[in-house]
């Protein structure tokens, strides 16, 4: 083929130090000039496709041979189904892909060809014509001359835009005062999470940390049955607390909080005041509580004060006391909203 067509004229651009030498002449590959190399490449490509076929057969076999469900088969400690299905699929696809690319690289004609670019813009003539036609269309419609029609249409369309926004109103109820209250009530027992058993002061030693819930989770239903579903989740997401027993002398309560603890046992909300992750990473020796999400650190001996991290407010404390039977109960609900800040919180 002619090489002069491939050698585009270089573009002289003023003071270009070196002119564009044009495309270099085509160089042949071994597979172009050597039949043995060509045959070898052909065999390689075919072999890759062959391996892919075998791997796909392996895939089908694996699907039926390896069990999942109640009796997972394993291979060298791994789930056999997952490893074999994925492995055979991977081999098949990589082999098909590599085969195709190898074919393109070694056997397909590989002359570089040149295509001319055209400016992305339209021609000046097209622009003028189109603009003219659009102007004529607008003119024909008379929208500029009839402001009454135009403005009444704009008014209607504006309301059309509002309609879908209005339609979204029923996505959820209004907040009301829901965020200000939790399920805790005066006299409600503090129970262990998961097992829901009440706690006596004598149960706990100094250094014990208990993840707790309000007793209402276990008997808060209408007929004293456990809460379920959404109610349970909402109650938990605000009501979860941690109990920590420390040396009574370590606690430095703020004014008005002197009787919120019982013999060194304090109760704090488990919900971080930053963005609401549950926190229970406590250091027994320092009473510092760390949030695993963003590392806010609170001092439980010092009224849940923030000592590090992005949280801005102290952890709300739940005032507790002991009931007649000797179990730990809440004196009241939390005295402030728990969890992350929100606009109306003040």
């Amino acid at each position: 083929m002619s090489t002069t067509q491939e050698h585009l004229p270089a573009v002289p651009e003023g003071d270009e130090p070196i002119p564009n030498p044009g495309l270099p002449a085509h160089q042949w590959r071994p597979t172009d000039v050597d039949t043995r190399a060509e045959k070898r490449a052909e065999r390689q490509v075919a072999a890759l496709f062959g391996v892919a076929t075998l791997a796909l057969v392996g895939f089908f076999v694996s699907y039926f041979v390896f069990q999942v469900g109640d009796n997972w088969d394993t291979i060298a400690g791994f789930g056999a189904s997952n490893v074999m299905l994925g492995g055979t699929l991977a081999i098949a696809f990589i082999c098909i892909g590599v085969g195709l690319i190898h074919w393109a690289r070694k056997l397909m004609t590989d002359h570089e060809i040149v295509e001319l670019r055209h400016p992305a813009s339209s021609s000046e003539k097209d622009r003028t014509e189109t603009v003219g036609m659009v102007m004529q269309g607008i003119d024909d419609s008379g929208i500029a001359r009839r402001p009454l029609v135009r403005n009444s249409l704009l008014g209607a369309l504006g309301l059309v835009g509002l309609a879908p926004i209005l339609m979204l109103r029923d996505l959820g109820p209004l907040p009301g005062d829901k965020l200000y209250h939790t399920i805790w009530k005066p006299g409600m027992r503090v129970v262990r999470d998961v097992v829901y058993t009440p706690i006596k002061v004598s149960d706990l030693e100094i250094g014990d940390l208990v993840n707790c819930e309000p007793e209402a989770l276990a008997n808060g239903g209408p007929d004293g049955e456990p809460l379920e579903g959404v109610e349970l989740q909402i109650a938990k997401s605000k009501g979860a607390v941690i109990l920590l027993r420390m040396e009574p002398d370590d606690i430095t309560p703020w004014k008005g909080r002197e009787n919120w603890s019982v013999q060194g046992i304090v109760a704090f909300s488990k919900i971080c005041t930053h963005v609401g992750c549950p926190i229970s990473l406590n250091e027994r020796t320092t009473h510092h509580l760390l949030c695993p999400c963003h590392q806010s650190t609170f001092d439980l001996a010092d009224n849940g004060k923030v000592i590090f991290g992005p949280a801005a407010r102290p952890l709300p404390q739940l005032p507790i006391e002991v009931d007649d039977e000797g179990y730990l109960v809440a004196q009241s609900d939390f005295t402030e909203p728990v969890g992350p800040s929100f606009w109306e919180r003040g």
């Binding site: 097992v195 706690i199 030693e205 100094i206 250094g207 014990d208 940390l209 208990v210 920590l244 320092t286």
Partner: peptide
């Protein structure tokens, strides 16, 4: 026993079965 900074989970906190 709550070694180092770990909280203790005494038998009154988490029962032996737990």
């Amino acid at each position: 026993t709550g070694p180092q900074a770990m909280d203790t989970f005494s038998n009154g906190n988490l029962s032996p079965e737990e």
